[in-house]
Amino acid sequence: MSFLHRITLEPGVCHGQPIIQGTRYPVALLVDLLRAGVTADEVLTDCPGLTREDLVAAMMYATLLTTPEKNRAATGFDCGPADHPTSVGSPSELRR
């Protein structure tokens, strides 16, 4: 199941960084917190309005950006139109 529809880019919010839809929480911040060892429960306590699905979406998005396109289908994160929000664009567009 994909939660990528929860990720959006809004030019006037957080300098256009990818955020969790309906919030001002940048995906990069959430991924950095989890990478630093903050637990999901701690993030959810400190960030009102976030859900576990939002954290999964942030990690899925980070995976998409760091997985070479040729390996994406093998990871289960093949970035087809049904799986990837049109507001964000394809990962290859984001790297430009």
Score class of each variant (00 low, 15 high):
residue 40 A to H: 07
residue 62 A to H: 15
residue 95 R to A: 13
residue 11 P to D: 14
residue 30 L to V: 05
residue 32 D to K: 13
residue 88 V to C: 05
residue 2 S to T: 15
residue 43 V to P: 02
residue 86 T to M: 14
residue 46 D to I: 02
residue 59 M to L: 15
residue 74 A to H: 09
residue 72 R to Q: 15
residue 1 M to C: 07
residue 22 G to L: 02
residue 47 C to E: 05
residue 32 D to G: 11
residue 19 I to S: 08
residue 63 T to G: 10
residue 34 L to W: 00
residue 58 A to F: 00
residue 21 Q to K: 11
residue 63 T to S: 10
residue 45 T to C: 05
residue 95 R to C: 04
residue 51 T to G: 06
residue 79 C to P: 04
residue 51 T to I: 00
residue 27 V to R: 08
residue 15 H to Y: 12
residue 3 F to I: 01
residue 85 P to V: 02
residue 9 L to Q: 15
residue 70 K to L: 13
residue 47 C to S: 11
residue 2 S to I: 03
residue 34 L to D: 03
residue 64 L to A: 12
residue 90 S to V: 03
residue 45 T to Q: 12
residue 81 P to R: 06
residue 22 G to P: 00
residue 37 G to Q: 07
residue 65 L to Q: 14
residue 96 R to V: 05
residue 81 P to W: 08
residue 42 E to L: 05
residue 87 S to M: 06
residue 4 L to A: 01
residue 43 V to L: 07
residue 62 A to M: 04
residue 34 L to G: 03
residue 54 D to Y: 02
residue 13 V to D: 08
residue 90 S to A: 11
residue 62 A to V: 00
residue 81 P to I: 05
residue 26 P to R: 14
residue 67 T to W: 08
residue 9 L to R: 15
residue 4 L to C: 01
residue 24 R to K: 13
residue 14 C to E: 11
residue 38 V to T: 13
residue 75 T to R: 04
residue 96 R to D: 07
residue 66 T to V: 08
residue 12 G to E: 15
residue 54 D to R: 03
residue 38 V to I: 14
residue 29 L to D: 01
residue 27 V to D: 08
residue 54 D to T: 03
residue 40 A to W: 04
residue 95 R to W: 02
residue 19 I to H: 06
residue 36 A to Q: 09
residue 58 A to H: 01
residue 90 S to W: 10
residue 52 R to Y: 09
residue 75 T to F: 04
residue 3 F to E: 15
residue 38 V to M: 13
residue 12 G to I: 01
residue 33 L to P: 00
residue 45 T to H: 10
residue 21 Q to E: 14
residue 60 M to P: 01
residue 69 E to T: 11
residue 76 G to W: 03
residue 28 A to I: 01
residue 27 V to L: 07
residue 50 L to H: 03
residue 92 S to Y: 04
residue 69 E to L: 13
residue 85 P to I: 02
residue 34 L to E: 06
residue 81 P to V: 09
residue 85 P to K: 06
residue 49 G to D: 12
residue 55 L to R: 04
residue 8 T to P: 00
residue 16 G to A: 06
residue 8 T to S: 05
residue 85 P to R: 14
residue 24 R to H: 12
residue 88 V to W: 04
residue 26 P to E: 08
residue 17 Q to D: 05
residue 95 R to D: 06
residue 93 E to R: 10
residue 66 T to N: 12
residue 14 C to M: 14
residue 30 L to K: 11
residue 33 L to S: 04
residue 86 T to P: 07
residue 35 R to T: 09
residue 96 R to W: 01
residue 46 D to S: 10
residue 2 S to R: 09
residue 62 A to Q: 14
residue 91 P to H: 09
residue 23 T to N: 01
residue 25 Y to F: 09
residue 13 V to M: 10
residue 77 F to V: 03
residue 29 L to K: 11
residue 92 S to R: 12
residue 31 V to F: 10
residue 73 A to V: 09
residue 83 D to V: 11
residue 45 T to E: 12
residue 89 G to D: 00
residue 17 Q to S: 06
residue 1 M to L: 05
residue 64 L to Q: 11
residue 12 G to F: 05
residue 83 D to F: 11
residue 57 A to E: 00
residue 46 D to V: 03
residue 1 M to N: 09
residue 89 G to Y: 03
residue 6 R to K: 15
residue 32 D to A: 15
residue 55 L to E: 00
residue 27 V to Y: 07
residue 67 T to V: 10
residue 63 T to Q: 11
residue 84 H to N: 09
residue 5 H to D: 14
residue 49 G to S: 09
residue 74 A to G: 07
residue 23 T to Q: 00
residue 23 T to I: 02
residue 66 T to C: 09
residue 64 L to K: 08
residue 88 V to I: 10
residue 78 D to I: 02
